[in-house]
């Protein structure tokens, strides 16, 4: 048993903020993220005898947190989601005209790989994600941040068909891309 493992009273100090940021980056709600940190640490205390010692304690705790996050998404998706999904998927948008052609500008994205090193860009990215309806943000985060398989996401978020999933992803992407365009990439090339 590693040193940290034997002192669970230190976990909050050692890993609290890391767990909090991890949770917050996924659930996008400070109260929920705090609760998830608490639940994770409590579950960790209960399960610490099962800890096999291969992973670092932090990695082990994040593993527990991942499950808690998915449970949270699953619970949040139990009610009234079908109606919402149908509306989101069929709603008219401002991105295409009646003929189905682009009616927004698409600016060229230069050096997007360097962006994440810039604090301001990260703020813009967060703002754009937080502007999505929460359910759509969850969908996008599970898929793109955590790389979860489509089928698993449908099951977790109670999305009725894969086809609905693709339509929703497509709408999230166009919306997010446009938001990044307006608030970042469109401003870079003057």
């Amino acid at each position: 048993m590693t040193h940290e493992m034997s002192k669970p009273e230190q976990w909050l100090g050692l890993y609290g903020d890391v767990l909090y940021r991890y949770a917050l980056s996924r659930v996008r709600n400070p109260d929920v993220a705090e609760d998830l940190v608490q639940e994770t640490l409590l579950a960790g205390i209960k399960a610490k005898d099962n800890y096999a010692g291969q992973a670092a304690v932090q990695t082990w705790l994040i593993g527990i947190l991942k499950h808690k996050i998915i449970d949270y998404f699953r619970k949040a998706s139990r009610e009234k989601t079908q109606e919402f999904d149908d509306r989101f998927a069929t709603e008219e948008d401002d991105y295409f005209d009646q003929q189905g052609s682009w009616q927004i500008d698409l600016s060229s994205w230069s050096k997007p790989d360097k962006c994440l090193e810039q604090e301001q860009f990260i703020e813009v990215l967060q703002t754009c994600i937080d502007r999505l309806p929460p359910r759509m943000a969850q969908l996008f985060i599970l898929r793109e941040l955590d790389g979860m398989e489509s089928e698993k996401i449908c099951e977790t978020l109670s999305i009725s068909t894969l086809n609905n999933f693709w339509v929703m992803m497509s709408r999230v992407r166009v919306q997010l891309r446009h938001c990044l365009d307006l608030n970042w990439f469109g401003k870079q090339e003057l």
């Binding site: 903020d17 705090e34 997007p112 990260i122 967060q126 941040l145």
Partner: peptide, 24 residues
């Protein structure tokens, strides 16, 4: 590019929340 960016954000662990953010 958006996908690559999100993947990098996921790997860095905290790119969607600045490192300065802490538990209250």
């Amino acid at each position: 590019k958006l996908r690559a960016m999100m993947k990098a954000a996921g790997n860095s662990g905290q790119a969607l929340v600045p490192e300065a953010v802490k538990l209250s």
